[in-house]
Design a protein around this nucleic acid. Sequence first.
DNA 1: CCATCAATTCAACGTTTGTTGAAGCGTATG
DNA 2: CATACGCTTCAACAAACGTTGAATTGATGG
Lengths: 119, 119
Amino acid sequence: MDERQALAAFAALGQEHRLRVVRALVIAGPDGLAAGALATEVGVASTNLSFHLKELSHAGLITFRREGKSVIYSAAYAGLSDLIAFLMRDCCQGRPEVCAPAVAALSACACPNGDTAHA
Amino acid sequence: MDERQALAAFAALGQEHRLRVVRALVIAGPDGLAAGALATEVGVASTNLSFHLKELSHAGLITFRREGKSVIYSAAYAGLSDLIAFLMRDCCQGRPEVCAPAVAALSACACPNGDTAHA
DNA sequence: CCATCAATTCAACGTTTGTTGAAGCGTATG
DNA sequence: CATACGCTTCAACAAACGTTGAATTGATGG
């Protein structure tokens, strides 16, 4: 990920309604949510939501697929990963302890190795 | 971290000059950089930089200390960690594999356990 | 084929944001 | 105590952003 993409992603997340959309989609998981459902959940007019969804999609933070009359949006987990990596890249020039808290914070969420506690 | 703080942080990062400042400070490490040095590195007028530094400080992404005539800024690693945690919170509702890539991306940067490779 | 529903595009608007130059404040030095 | 230096505050302006209602596209059902 280059600076241009990261910039677009952070700018996209720096807006109340868009941040809520991404959070809702992250929580919803790979199944995603229809645009209408999102509009209700976030509390924004559909016209306005479309604008924000396009922005998020352009920033690589969400993806979408048509399903009948609805358009289903989901979080782009890869895009989110890349964004985190960009922000912390080159963070520990010989000082691993500096950015270790960030790893711990994220690990607490994901428990990727099936090893849930006392890591 | 609550939504309001996360919003301020993402909005702060969604601006070219501010993102460069944060990246420069993340790379610089705990020692930090003086405002003047940052202005040179980022390529922005000192007046303008002050504005952005205040914004970043307010968002909890950087800290500062006075040292003689200079003001030294450094990355607030804890703030960055919290931000990452907020973004990915509740991401793996029974599906750890979904956000595992994010953990991998960050771990590659930090190698916190002294275990550098082949993890 | 027409009516309906879901979602998007478009143009217009009010507000917020980033930038600039001049002036001010705090710290060091002769 | 006066000067120089580093940085910040202030007021003003142009550009970008988010919101809204009306019109449009695409898919489904009578």
